[in-house]
């Protein structure tokens, strides 16, 4: 359903609560047997879908390249559920098993949340701060680049590159992220082996 159609449908049902209430009362009376109301307890009747007050964030499936639209339901800063977006002309609300598992991909106790560091020849991980890791990585990049940078080939041609640093990955990332990677690594640092999954 398009958002416009949905608005129309919502307008059309705006008058419903009154009617529903009346119907509910009729049903309650009809179902009253002795002193018990059947078949729904008061608790059941008050139940609502847990996504009822959640706010919907539009997203796209992170798996294959079909690009199915996702609705991410968020309440109190937590993702409650992820479903196919019925508005999307690509998937019309449907998802494959992987797409339908996106919730578990993102909300998962096995996810890494801290920086882990393994020193040379060490047999264990150490937890480190993000700031420390960023500084160390910047230093490694500078040290390796400075030690291996080639300005000219023996034949005199200018190349301004380093072949001693490489990067792999990008097809699971955003366009904007790929752009900054190529700009920084190639454009500033002269790293040429910037590659991603398109190559496999």
């Amino acid at each position: 359903m398009s958002s416009r159609k949905r608005e129309e449908a919502e307008e059309a049902t705006a008058a419903l609560p009154l009617l529903v209430k009346t119907l509910q009362e009729v049903a309650d009376e009809a179902l009253e047997i002795g002193s018990k109301r059947q078949p729904f307890s008061a608790e059941s009747r008050q139940k609502r879908p847990r996504i009822r007050d959640a706010h919907v964030v539009h997203s796209v499936c992170p798996y294959c390249a079909v690009g199915c639209g996702l609705n991410v339901y968020v309440k109190d800063g937590q993702v409650l559920d992820i479903e196919g977006n019925p508005d999307s002309p690509i998937n019309h609300g449907t998802l494959c098993p992987k797409g339908a598992a996106t919730f578990q991909y993102t909300v998962n106790p096995s996810r890494l949340t801290r920086v882990l560091y393994r020193a040379p020849y060490s047999d264990h991980w150490e937890e480190k701060s993000l700031d420390w890791a960023m500084e160390q990585i910047a230093l490694r990049v500078k040290q390796t680049r400075d030690a291996t940078f080639v300005e000219r080939l023996p034949d005199g041609r200018e190349v301004n590159h380093t072949l001693a640093i490489a990067s792999l990955g990008g097809a699971t990332l955003d366009v904007e992220e790929n752009y900054l990677m190529k700009k920084l690594f190639t454009g500033a640092l002269g790293i040429v082996s910037i590659e991603n999954q398109a190559r496999i």
């Binding site: 079909v66 690009g67 890791a133």
Partner: peptide
């Protein structure tokens, strides 16, 4: 016997950042 120094940095999921994908 392995010298490689490894930095393992946790990444955000696709729902935890804004940006664009270009599909097939």
């Amino acid at each position: 016997q392995i010298k490689t120094e490894v930095f393992l940095l946790p990444a955000a999921a696709s729902t935890e950042k804004e940006g664009s994908f270009t599909n097939t």
